[in-house]
Design a protein around this nucleic acid. Sequence first.
RNA 1: UGGCCUAUGGUGUAACGGUAGCACAUCAGAUUUUGGUUCUGCCUGUCGAGGUUCGAAUCCUUGUAGGCCAACCA
Length: 560
Amino acid sequence: MTTELIEKEKTESNNFLEEIIEQDIAAGKNGGRVHTRFPPEPNGYLHVGHATSICLNFGLALKYGGKCNLRFDDTNPVTEDTEYVDSILADVRWLGFEPAGVYYASDYFPRLYEFAVDLIKKGFAYVDDSTAEQIAALKGTPTEPGKPSPYRDRSVEENLDLFERMRKGEFPEGSKTLRAKGDLASSNMIMRDPLLYRIKFAHHHRTGDDWCIYPMYDMAHGQSDSIEHITHSICTMEFIPHRELYDWCIEKLDIFPSKQYEFARRNLSYTIVSKRKLLKLVNENHVRGWDDPRMPTISAMRRRGYTAAAIREWARRVGIAKREILVELSLLEFCVREDLNKIATRSMVVLNPLKVVITNYPADKRELMEMGNNPEDPNAGTRKLPFSNEIWIEQDDFMENPPPKFFRLSPGSLARLKGAYIIQCDEVIKDADGNPTELRCTYFPESRSGSDISGLKPKTTIHWVCANCGIPAEVRLYDRLFTVEDPANDERDFLELINPDSLKVVPNAIAEANLAEAMPGEKYQFLRLGYFTPDPDSKPGKLVFNRTVTLKDAWSKAKG
RNA sequence: UGGCCUAUGGUGUAACGGUAGCACAUCAGAUUUUGGUUCUGCCUGUCGAGGUUCGAAUCCUUGUAGGCCAACCA
């Protein structure tokens, strides 16, 4: 083997799930078939955590030539809604994955019911009349075994009859449950006669009022996996204790043996994903909605301008393991920049305008400056920008009394106007408070971009917009929503940790005219400022841009 | 204080009993008509204690730390 191949093998090392899958394939398990599933409950919007799970499940299927289903785990009608079904499907597709099939656990209700009957017939399940409190009291503790319910030894016939009547709606909510006959002495609390079915007179978003009994997670999930012949059912670590019951049900039912594997949840620094907390942020107007670009939801990341490719790459780089981790936001931002750098159209926008008058450039003269749309992509073409004697530059690009390492414009210094001429600052005009309001500069006619014979070497190139032809735009600058790395594990209330500067609106930025028709979904790099995308609020004549992420900025770092 | 899971640089992740590698972050430098990109380099790590072994991040014992489990949630 060549060293090159060895290197490649090293860099493409597998994670522990890929190891398992490859062993299974090698052993000919399931005929070498790989079938995963992403099983969201349609009771909220998908967030970054779901995104990594989606990438994992669909990614594994892709890597091993298998399939991945999207299955809505809709067994609790009280919390679920079709509104979420639609957004979840849209988010999965936006991330770039097409489910092999879209299924609903609720579609399996009839079969699940038959499974339950089968369990009863085999003596593995019974109807319990105990209340929730009684059940909890008899369950014991991790150190003491549970005690049997007084109804545990009902006959198969009685259980069958009772369960059928539960289904017919003869008993009030909470009065009866179906329980597995597990092991009351098990050190695994989940195995102490877990609930399989409960009575709920609730309207289901898909089955309507057909059912008044609904299966619990443990009765529905593994069996749904089995029905779909899922080979690798991947979930998070908190389900480890459920695996014993997962296998128990499949064994007792004697159905297709799907297998459950667990990986650790991956948390993102400076964000929270708790449904309750996110809901509070929305309801109390700390953000503008579920897709506010500061939110960790997939819809928010999309609106902010993150690309699906960047999120997929991020998930890949983070990898998976069995301990819960906090991933630095900087890695996600790196992936976003990496992708956007390749595809974003460059343009010039001035956030905080400072007027520059070029005194030796004829007031009635206009030139069209041609510049590349993307230095990283020769096929991106060029665009033209009008140049005149009056332009806007960024206030930050001028300092009257610059510190030693500042090499932008200051009195007497030179700067290249991107794609145009080199100018020299001759005079600063200030208001009553001493703030610069206008710069008077001279330009060097022989320094025109592309045909520069001036021999001048300015230390910097700055962006600009022609004063007469720039167009107004609102620009929304986003920063992290929280001030601490791990807001979920902070002793203070999470609302106290909200970053007051997470959104700064620049109402009067000036954009180059080429941006007049910019549409949501398009990706731009505003030169030297960052990556931006038009917000859905944006329309021709009233442009609104979201800052997706800043450019890496050595200068702001240097000055502190 | 019953059971289960986990522990590798600042953050993630590899190394499958045989030279602890990669990425991000940080710092320094080169290049640059974006203080971007690109390139180069530096710094930093096997939780502790025992044991097995010629050899341990890896196996065993034990300690420590973190996480999970006693919902008619998933």
